[in-house]
């Protein structure tokens, strides 16, 4: 896959991930700044590095598996590897403008 196609696919994955909402905040994981990195490690294999707003978040498994399902249901992707990290810790400056606006901060 050439670089341009790869970049388009990653954008498509990022957009698709906006369907995964934190049900408490009613805000998607992308605008909340939980997705740290997206890459294609192999042909049709995506790797998502992400965090949660707080360790021990009760929605831990729901959000992580939601991210996995959401990417794996794309026809261009066969497998999604989700890596959950706590460092660097999530902070509000990782949120997008849309995210901050949704929480009344812009």
């Amino acid at each position: 896959m050439d670089v341009q196609n790869q970049s388009e696919l990653l954008d498509k994955i990022r957009n698709n991930l906006k369907r995964v909402l934190d049900p408490e905040l009613n805000l998607n994981v992308v605008d909340l700044g939980l997705i740290y990195d997206l890459s294609l490690v192999e042909e049709r294999v995506a790797k998502i590095t992400m965090t949660l707003t707080t360790p021990g978040c009760p929605l831990h498994d729901s959000i992580v598996s939601g991210v996995k399902y959401c990417v794996e249901e794309m026809e261009e992707i066969y497998r999604a590897e989700v890596q959950l990290v706590w460092e660097p810790a999530w902070s509000p400056d990782k949120m997008t403008e849309d995210g901050l606006r949704a929480l009344g901060r812009l």
Partner: peptide, 17 residues
């Protein structure tokens, strides 16, 4: 919510809290 919807988040639309 966790009991009923956590398995389908990302697959289908789910209600908010």
């Amino acid at each position: 919510w966790t009991h009923k919807y956590s398995k389908i988040i990302g697959k289908a639309d789910v209600p908010t809290m």
